[in-house]
Simulated assay, not measured.
Amino acid sequence: MPDSPPPAPRTLECDPLTWNDIFTTTIDTVPVECIRPIDTDCPSWAIYPPGCYRPDDYLGALHARDTDGLWHVQTTGERHATFADAVRTLRRPPTWSHERDRAIAWARGLLHDPDLMVIDIQTTGLREPFAAQISAMNADGELVLDELLNPQADFEPEASALHGLTRQSTQHAATFSNLLSTLTEIFHGRHLVAYNIAFDRDVLARELARHHHDPAPADAWLSACRWDDAILPISTWTGLWSAQHRAYRYTRLGSRYESAANCRLLFHRLQVLAHSATHHR
């Protein structure tokens, strides 16, 4: 093997057909060496740690396919949009299959829980925001709540640019206080699940403290619900390992910045996990 492989492509976004036969690139601050097999001119590379070519060092093979524009991971049959994500699948720790199975079991348990409530809240921004839209979906996939709210606060321009809500467009909507009895009926005693549940819970806590002028009743109200975050199980199931952080990368759901649509996205992802085959019995 050469001591100094040719440099990586100028960008991993360029056409793989123009890439060198051998190059080193860095994914999540950790380099990998990519070597095209000698028996092909196709955009395929075997992946190794730089300078390490023993059989135990081999991470796997990646193939760029013209037909779907995705990177194919030979060992798992997976397809990923970027070369970097494909490499991340090859770096999964040996414990991943067990962790994935636990994520699948978690999703199956949720979907069999009659108290499940998938929620999403759109807000006035990120800095101490108030609620502008709240939706909730039950264990049957039925949307049981979809409300626009008057947050009685200004919107951050960046937030309005994403979800399209403004002070003017929400001025005639119900306030959180108007909706509180409905929220209590729907949420109390339920198992609330969201993508980054801490954010949604903080928004509700802020709204409740404003309504009661006291954080104590807010804490009591929140304690009547169970809270569960879907980020870690879904990111673990996806299995894009960051060698830099030694953790699974956050998996994006493809947010529509509309609360009902986000509930549907998360519910569908839970179904995908629940219907996945496990590796261990």
Score class of each variant (00 low, 15 high):
92 R>A: 07
119 I>A: 06
258 E>Y: 01
237 W>V: 05
221 W>C: 02
274 A>S: 05
237 W>D: 09
138 N>R: 06
65 R>C: 11
84 A>K: 15
90 L>T: 02
180 L>R: 10
21 D>P: 00
76 T>H: 05
85 D>G: 09
162 L>I: 15
193 V>N: 09
95 T>G: 02
110 L>A: 02
32 V>T: 12
74 Q>T: 13
106 W>G: 12
126 L>M: 14
215 P>G: 06
146 D>P: 08
56 D>N: 10
80 H>P: 08
266 L>I: 00
167 R>A: 14
239 G>L: 00
193 V>P: 07
78 E>C: 07
6 P>R: 05
128 E>S: 13
161 A>T: 14
244 Q>F: 02
153 A>E: 06
66 D>V: 13
195 Y>G: 08
218 A>D: 03
94 P>K: 06
99 E>I: 04
79 R>P: 00
174 A>I: 00
57 D>C: 09
180 L>M: 06
7 P>N: 10
115 D>R: 15
18 T>A: 14
106 W>A: 11
29 T>N: 12
235 S>P: 05
170 T>K: 12
188 H>F: 02
22 I>W: 15
261 A>F: 02
209 A>S: 15
171 Q>D: 12
172 H>W: 06
5 P>K: 03
225 C>H: 04
150 N>M: 01
235 S>K: 04
30 V>P: 01
167 R>L: 10
31 P>L: 09
67 T>S: 14
48 Y>Q: 12
17 L>W: 13
14 C>P: 01
168 Q>A: 14
